[in-house]
């Protein structure tokens, strides 16, 4: 028997199953990053000394990464709009750009990390760097996860467009919501770790 409401919304809730599912998952992610941010606040406020963050880290690289991630967030929602309009070529273009954005973000991040390691700055150095590596590392893992999903939906997953377009559109929406969330986390990480 088919599971109802996988691609058409249930009338009384107005939502499809995957959409509720992803929002619930994002709620738990909010709690995860919320817990880590509260750890940051407690450790920083309780510290006797705290390094000048913007002197230790590279603000230009982080600004570049912020721009990259925000642009990729825009391209994935443009990809969704394209799917909804039935323009599958435009969809592939925008999703491709999103993937490039995610990959570029990781490349910049790798440069940043190797630069820190080269200066002998590692997680064990002090609690600021410990938090920096843990928070950005976890965020980078989220980027990797999103990249894998987006790559699938750009490549082999696009076949579903012909067999079940409504469900495919739902998948793009869900992948997009996740990707925007990753962007939102970075929007907070950027000032908290680099600027304050």
């Amino acid at each position: 028997m088919e599971i109802p409401y996988t691609s058409e919304p249930r009338p009384d809730t107005g939502l499809t199953n995957p959409k509720i599912g992803i929002w619930l998952f994002l709620a738990s992610e909010v709690m995860l990053f919320g817990s880590l941010f509260s750890a940051y606040a407690l450790l920083r406020m309780g510290a006797e000394t705290w390094p000048d963050q913007s002197a230790v880290l590279s603000v230009p690289l982080a600004t570049l990464n912020t721009v990259i991630l925000i642009v990729s967030s825009a391209t994935i929602v443009l990809a969704l709009a394209a799917v909804r309009a039935g323009r599958i070529d435009a969809y592939r273009r925008f999703m491709g750009l999103t993937i490039l954005g995610g990959a570029a973000f990781l490349v910049v991040k790798a440069f940043e990390y190797s630069d820190k390691f080269a200066q002998g700055l590692v997680p064990a150095t002090d609690n600021f760097l410990a938090l920096y590596f843990t928070l950005t590392g976890l965020h980078a893992l989220h980027v990797v996860g999103g990249l894998v999903v987006n790559l699938y939906l750009w490549g082999p997953g696009v076949r579903m467009w012909r067999t079940d377009p409504a469900r495919f559109t739902g998948r793009i929406e869900v992948a997009g919501l996740y990707w925007h969330f990753v962007d939102v986390v970075w929007i907070f990480l950027f000032p908290v770790l680099y600027l304050l």
Binding site: S35, L36, V122, P123, N127, A130, F133, T134
Partner: peptide, 17 residues
């Protein structure tokens, strides 16, 4: 989950959370 990640860092990466 967050706490376990932090304790894992303490044990494996030598941090002092």
């Amino acid at each position: 989950q967050a706490a376990a990640i932090l304790q894992g860092m303490d044990r494996l990466a030598g941090t002092s959370f």
